[in-house]
Nucleic acid binder design. Structure first.
Lengths: 107, 107
DNA sequence: TCCATATTTCTATATTTATCGAAATATAGA
DNA sequence: TCTATATTTCGATAAATATAGAAATATGGA
């Protein structure tokens, strides 16, 4: 992962509504949730929610899947793990770390 | 960790210079680096660097330690790990994850 | 086709953020 | 104390971002 991409991902998460959306999707699992369901659970207006989902989507942190009239968004676990790995990369110059960065993964 | 604190931490990292500073400090280890050294390595003007270090510091991601005329900044590994853990918390509702969130730690 | 529902795009406004020159502050050593 | 070096604060400007009402688009079913 390069610096600019990581900045984009972090910026996508650095906003209350978007962080809540992302964490909701992380919890929801691979099946994801429809936009309406997300808005309902978090109390975000449709236009605002769409704006935020686009930010997360462009950053590659979530995936969208159309199903009839609904659009299901789900967390992109690979992207999340890549980001976490980037942050801890070469930690302490590789010495004396309890755990290597490669263990920072999930799902 | 609560949502607002996580947003502040993520916002602190969501900027090219600050992300570079943080990653440099993560690599540098607990001893940290003096402000001048950081500016030298990253090519950031003193006033701008001070501004960014304050942001990282207020977010709790780095610690400052005065040593003579120098101020040494170092990564706060505990804060970093808390943030990573927050992002992966309750991943997939706790089911079918390859690794639990608690393994996302370093140093 | 027509209607209802789901989601996105458009448009405008208010707020926040990044940058850096210049000045101020702090510390060490002569 | 005086001077040089390290870092921070001040002040002003330019750019990016969040919000939401209204309108537009897309899909499924009557």
């Amino acid at each position: 992962m390069e610096n600019k991409h990581a900045v984009r991902s972090l910026a996508a998460l650095a906003q209350e509504s978007r962080l809540a959306i992302f964490r909701l999707l992380v919890t929801a699992g691979p099946a994801g949730l429809a936009v309406g369901k997300i808005g309902e659970q978090l109390g975000v207006a449709p236009a605002t929610l769409s704006f935020h989902l686009k930010e997360l989507s462009h950053a590659g942190l979530v995936d969208a899947r159309q199903d009839g009239r609904f659009v299901f968004y789900s967390a992109n676990y690979a992207a999340m793990n890549a980001l976490l790995g980037f942050l801890t990369e070469n930690c302490c110059a590789g010495e004396s770390c309890a755990l290597p960065a490669s263990t920072t993964s999930c799902c």
